[in-house]
Nucleic acid binder design. Sequence first.
DNA 1: ATCTCGATTCCCT
DNA 2: GGGAATCGAGATT
Length: 197
Amino acid sequence: MNVPLSQSFYNQPTLELAIALLGKKLIHDTDDGICEGYIVETEAYMGPHDRAAHSYNNRRTARTEVMFGEAGTIYTYTMHTHVLLNIVCAQKNIPHAILIRAIEPLEHCIPLLKERRKAAKNNAQLTNGPGKLCQAFNINMSYNGKSIFLPPLYIAEGKDIKQIVESKRVGIENSGEAKDFLWRFYEQDNVYVSKRD
DNA sequence: ATCTCGATTCCCT
DNA sequence: GGGAATCGAGATT
């Protein structure tokens, strides 16, 4: 039933891909069960000229190296003890990536997600943030550099998203003009979105 | 070796 | 809406 989208899907312009990812299904097949949910919020980070990106000015370090790889490569990093999930895109050596910020989980895996996220006071808090969804889906740093079109962590077709909102990215106040770029996309009125305008 | 500062989350007011 | 928690990457000495 869940068929991974082919690598060619990730070979489209970054902003278009950030929008195309909305509604797609993220699946993680783990030892304690399968978790799956629709991507409902994304953010684009566009390398050399985006001051908010780790790869700003083509900064190339051990951490950012995977951003220079092929479209469809997974980029995970830790921020304030939380793991964040990104999909590398654009051509090789152009360090763009898309941050997955929120997931609408399928009903059947909610019990499993609750076990992993004790702090959640309601269903929305299970996956309404980039660190939360990684904790809920048990996504860790071992996926850094792997491919998002291969199990056990992959993306498949999902649902249609009717209303898409574009807005400013979250948590980058100190990045000059880049803080005002409308490079965050989410499904309007979806309760799993981390921050709605 | 040391310093700074987050692509966050949680708890409190 | 504000502040603490918390720790590693990247820059600086």
